[in-house]
Simulated scan of single mutants.
Amino acid sequence: MSTSSTAALTVRDPWALVPSLGNLDAYISAVNRLPLLTAEEENASARKLRESGDLEAAGRLVLSHLRLVVSISRQYLGYGLPQGDLIQEGNVGLMKAVKRFDPDQGVRLVSYAMHWIKAEIHEYILKNWRMVKVATTKAQRKLFFNLRSMKHSMKEGVADDQTHRMSLTEAQLEQVATTLNVKREEVLEMETRLSGGDVALEPQTDDDGESYAPIAYLADETQEPTRVLEAQARDALAGDGITRALDALDPRSRRIVEERWLKVNDDSSGGMTLHELAAEYGVSAERIRQIEVAAMKKMRKALTPA
């Protein structure tokens, strides 16, 4: 490493070498220009960090390996997640590796950090690639990532972002199961999960026309606050409210309303007709209708809140 390169990584604030860049390509270009540390420089920085918590030493170790995170992130672009997010999660893994790195083990940081970088990216993918998690156990996670990698090698010439949608043949299923030392059924289940396409809950268009995205028919409107209040008010009116309104009527008006609107016979035919009530009270059917209308108005008034 040249003297100028070494000095670049020994400044008071090494993080200033990678400024906040809005463009991902600019960030990648910047980290690729950062100089690498020699084995001796890496060792010295790691010892400073372990012995005295030197943050400048930690900064030098992290900065010199940012290009490694970028390189590893490219292996996971086929999951449809932004590379910037993959890099960000990988950087978290890199910092964890730097914190735990022991220079006395005789291993370069690049080899040690790869595990931590991939672990963080794997965790991010499993949490964000699908709304429903496709791999929850350690064995399923291993199968998830290895299956996709093997499918890619079996489907030469297929676009990377379409690999997970390609189904395996019976022979390929057996080959994967044997190679990964798992049951054929487990491979088939994971293959089914990987092959399923994602469906957006929200409509993916700005048009004003009707939308039939899942959000339109998956919502539980029964728990919507306005509907809950309306249901409570309706139940109150159907119970105590109706009783209170009927109590406001004289006996004849009450019987007419009950016979006309509230009574149901065994044959579901309803109560008495206007003519039947007219014959019973010795008046015309029109007079019964007038009494009914007046009674209904009085009931509505009784049901109206003060």
Rank of each mutant, 00 (worst) to 15 (best):
A279V: 14
S284R: 04
E230V: 07
W116A: 06
D240H: 06
E189D: 08
Q83N: 00
A8R: 15
T179F: 13
T136L: 06
M131K: 09
H164I: 10
E276Q: 15
R141E: 15
G90V: 00
I117K: 00
T136A: 06
R165Y: 13
L66H: 07
L109H: 02
T38K: 05
K118E: 08
L126I: 06
N265P: 01
K297H: 15
A119H: 08
D207M: 06
Y112C: 02
A302K: 13
L37Y: 04
V257A: 00
S52W: 07
R227L: 15
R141I: 04
S195K: 15
G84E: 01
L77N: 01
N23C: 06
D250R: 04
S64L: 10
E259G: 08
S4R: 05
W116N: 01
A279H: 11
M150K: 10
A238H: 08
G241A: 06
L24A: 00
A306F: 12
V98F: 04
D207A: 12
M131R: 11
A295L: 11
A295V: 11
W261T: 13
T226C: 07
V182I: 09
D235N: 13
Y112F: 13
P14G: 03
L81F: 03
D207Q: 10
L168S: 03
L143G: 09
G80F: 10
A8F: 11
S195P: 06
T178M: 15
G196I: 12
L194C: 04
A113Y: 00
A200R: 10
L68D: 05
G80A: 05
G90I: 00
L194N: 05
S153D: 13
S195V: 14
G282W: 08
A238R: 10
R165C: 06
I215M: 11
T205S: 14
D250S: 01
T136C: 03
P203G: 05
Q105R: 14
L24S: 01
L109T: 01
N91K: 01
A8D: 11
K298M: 10
R67H: 07
E286R: 15
L55M: 14
R300F: 15
K118R: 12
E258Q: 09
E221L: 14
M272F: 12
E210V: 13
L194H: 07
T179I: 13
T163G: 01
V107F: 13
